Amino acid sequence: MTAPATAPAPVPEPGAAPSRRPRTGPRWPVRLAAAVLAALGLAVLLVPPLVQLDQQLVDLRSAGLPPSFEHPLGTDQVGRDVLLRSVYGLRVSFLVGLVAALVSMVIGGLVGLAAGSLGGVPDRLIMRVVDGFTSVPHLLFGIFIVAMFSPSPVAVVVSVGVTHWTTAARIVRSEVLSLRSRPFVEAAISGGAGRLRVVRRHLAPHLAPHLLLATVLMVPHAIWHETALSFLGLGLPAHLASLGNMINDGQRSLLAGDWWSSLVPGLFILVPTLAVAVLGQHWRDRLNPRLRSELSL
């Protein structure tokens, strides 16, 4: 008895919309990460204008209170509300991290674009400089830069921007080298287009999504960098509500049993970082489905 012949796969009609790619993996982590970031974003945007926080206010009568209805996440060793200061600290750390990530992406994008566009000896020289910066530990180099300034947001932005541009430079250079061999770029060069026109009309539109993704993924890293510097007393001023300063202040209360003073700001760092990592991975998979298929083999 012969097996029934299988029907051939239907051929799509010309001009028909392409079928959707099959989904890979569950969708709930992406939705949960988006919901968490949306909730934290609303808190950062709405709470500071509605609740004015005096950075210098001290209430020793409420010092070290555990979580309660009046203070949902307790108070620190000088009576300040931990939840309110954590929201303010996340706002400050996010703004500093965002500006620092943009600075590093601009520097790295220009360097990578120059290396990939020029090629030859200039490319090799530029990449040797990039290798030199990469060989130096980021945190130690950042401490050296911040130590030359007084604690301020500008010092942290300069520190992160100067030490983290190498990643963007490598990403942009590799994309430029890949785009230079594409037929439309070769056709533009053969047609007499100048180097600036090729960069502006053909390279920049293709590089923008990759740079934007790199910037988004750099923001949590910049926040961690700012937190480490503030924890060491070299980042933001000590009186300013930042997550690093709060963890530094909270470690002194751990022996007294005030665990919430350090745990809460630590969670405000960890949770957004994981959420951004999940969304960034999802974005990268959609941006480069070929890489996703290769990683799944």
Rank of each mutant, 00 (worst) to 15 (best):
M1D: 14
M1H: 15
T2K: 03
P4Q: 10
G15D: 12
A16S: 15
A17S: 05
R20T: 15
G25E: 11
V30T: 03
V30R: 01
R31H: 12
L32P: 02
A34T: 02
V44G: 04
P49S: 11
V51R: 03
D54K: 00
D54H: 00
Q56Y: 14
G64D: 15
L65R: 01
F69V: 13
F69M: 10
L73A: 08
L84Y: 13
R91P: 13
V92E: 10
V92S: 10
S93R: 01
L98V: 09
L102E: 05
S104V: 13
S104R: 03
I107F: 08
G109D: 11
A115T: 11
G116H: 08
L118G: 06
G119W: 02
V121T: 09
P122L: 03
P122D: 07
D131N: 03
V136S: 04
L139P: 05
I145Y: 07
V156D: 09
V156R: 05
V160E: 03
V160W: 02
G161A: 05
G161R: 01
T163H: 11
W165R: 10
V172C: 12
S174T: 09
L177V: 05
S178N: 12
S178D: 14
F184T: 02
V185W: 06
I189Y: 02
A193N: 04
V198L: 08
R200F: 09
P209M: 07
H210S: 15
L211T: 03
L211C: 10
I223K: 01
W224A: 15
L234G: 07
G235R: 03
H239D: 15
A241V: 13
N245R: 04
N245T: 10
S253I: 02
L254M: 14
L267S: 05
I269G: 05
I269R: 00
L270S: 05
L279D: 06
G280I: 05
H282R: 06
W283I: 14
R284C: 13
L295M: 15
